[in-house]
Computed example of a mutant assay.
Amino acid sequence: MQYVMPIVIGVLYALLMSLIREPHRRRFNAIMVAGAGAAYLSNGAGLGGWEFAFAALATYVAYRGLDSWTFIGIGWLLHTAWDIVHHLKGSPLIPFFHDSSLGCAICDPVIALWCLRGGPSPRELLTSARVVRQNP
């Protein structure tokens, strides 16, 4: 369950975000990437100045994501890498939940894949699946 729930959460995130109409969906997700980039700043996660450097990088990527789903996907993949560093270092995202960074590292690539596909709505996903099935 520890590995399944983060995937479910990532899928639910994508489904809920797909309810927001474009272009607001892309912009809102860019803001979410910026927030995720700063998530470790407030919990004293123990990487010192590197926390600020990562937050600055995530902010830049999020800014570029205002106009690009690809940058939003890259932002989630960068956050995945940062989650892995925190999980291995032993400084979790949620201080009282030891494996929270691991869960985040599993969830974030699911979101990234959705973003790298252009943040499609469920209808767009189904349409593209039908096209692929019809033209193998």
Rank of each mutant, 00 (worst) to 15 (best):
G73V: 02
I74F: 10
A58S: 15
G90Y: 02
D99G: 02
D83N: 15
I94S: 03
G103N: 10
D99A: 12
G90E: 04
V85W: 00
L57W: 07
L93S: 03
D67S: 14
D67N: 13
A62V: 08
S68K: 03
G73D: 07
W82Y: 13
R64A: 15
G90M: 07
D83Y: 02
C104S: 12
G73R: 08
L102V: 02
W76S: 06
I72K: 05
A56D: 10
S68R: 03
G65R: 09
V85T: 00
T80P: 02
D99K: 08
H98P: 04
F54Y: 14
G73A: 09
A105K: 06
D99T: 13
G103A: 12
W76A: 11
A58I: 05
A62D: 11
F96R: 13
F54M: 12
S68G: 09
V61E: 09
V61Y: 08
F54W: 12
L77D: 07
F54L: 13
F96L: 09
V85R: 00
W76T: 01
I72T: 13
A105G: 11
S101A: 15
G73C: 10
F97M: 12
D83Q: 07
A56L: 15
F96A: 14
D99W: 07
G65P: 07
G73H: 05
Y60D: 07
H86C: 06
A58Y: 03
A55M: 10
L88E: 01
S68E: 06
S101Q: 00
I72N: 12
P95W: 05
H98W: 10
W69H: 08
P92F: 02
I84R: 02
L66Q: 12
A55N: 08
F71M: 14
T70I: 15
V85F: 01
L102H: 01
P95T: 13
L57K: 04
R64I: 10
L78A: 07
L102R: 09
V61W: 06
Y63W: 15
H86L: 01
S100I: 02
F97E: 10
P95D: 10
I74M: 06
R64W: 08
V85Q: 00
H98L: 12
A55I: 10
S100K: 05
G75I: 11
Y63H: 11
R64T: 10
A58M: 14
F97P: 00
A81D: 07
G103P: 02
L88Q: 00
I74E: 01
L57T: 14
D99M: 08
H98T: 13
G65C: 12
A56C: 11
T70H: 11
F96S: 14
I74D: 01
